[in-house]
Amino acid sequence: MTPSHRHLLQIEGMHPPQIEAMLDLAESYVLLNRSGKTQRDLLRGRTLINLFFEDSTRTRTSFELAGKRLGADVINMSVSTSSVNKGETLLDTAATLNAMMCDLLVVRHDQSGAPNLLAQKVDASVINAGDGTHEHPTQALLDALTIRRRKGRLQGLIVAICGDVLHSRVARSNIHLLSAMGAIVRVIGPTTLIPAECARLGVDVFHDMNKGIAGADVVMMLRLQRERMVGGLVPSAREYFRFYGLDFEKLAHAKRDVIVMHPGPMNRGVEIDSAVADDPVRSVIKEQVEMGVAVRMAVLDILSRESRRNV
């Protein structure tokens, strides 16, 4: 983890052995979860706070479950960013949490870099659960675990990430992780939704989805925010679906054993055809959710190791 082993703020800068170790540990948690056993003594007496400045049922629940399976006391805090002065809230909250002796702080915020700022102000380990358009490290880890279990490796795979890359923290974390692990990463999207100098992140950029998807082992779809559909950066949802929505026709250009991923929640009929999303063979979307809990257990385990040693 960078820059210290105390926090998980971003994938960028992480080394392949660190990623590998985390995935291996998560793998063991998958087996543990499936066996129905628990490890409730690991984080007993420790406090995990889910601090969400942005709504998210899926990620919050996943962290909550991960914390509880390891025996932590889990508290959910939802803070509305619209109603109060944002800056005061963030720093005041940091001070409050410090006074509560929180051990693990899971943060979701609509501003890039907010977890970095919190990490400077609190004693707890900070885990970035998605910050603005920056990163979503645990999503990339769970995606990697899902791919690795299906394909047996990451090295050399062709992964096509498709959609609103400009605003996607999921895309950024995945690009960093997958290219670090030796996958060939492509991004596909309309020119207005691809960020500046994207190729400098080590990816190939496509605007024609059929070409971008050709020969892919993995197709990873991104969510298109509703407010960006109409007239802003793309003219309409139907035009977007025509050129960048994933249906079987476009998917036919990929490898026969391609897997389809989506971080959720999905806009069916906008970025993905329902039939593709529900395809029992190729869609691994439900498996991603399962991997999410295991990966987050592994992250909580690793980040709390040092403090557990000191007790």
């Binding site: 960028e12 870099g113 603005g132 100098e197 994207c198 992140l201």
Partner: peptide, 10 residues
């Protein structure tokens, strides 16, 4: 606008 703004998500 550039590589850094893309990396930082700003």
């Amino acid at each position: 606008q550039g590589e850094l703004s893309t990396r930082l998500g700003l």
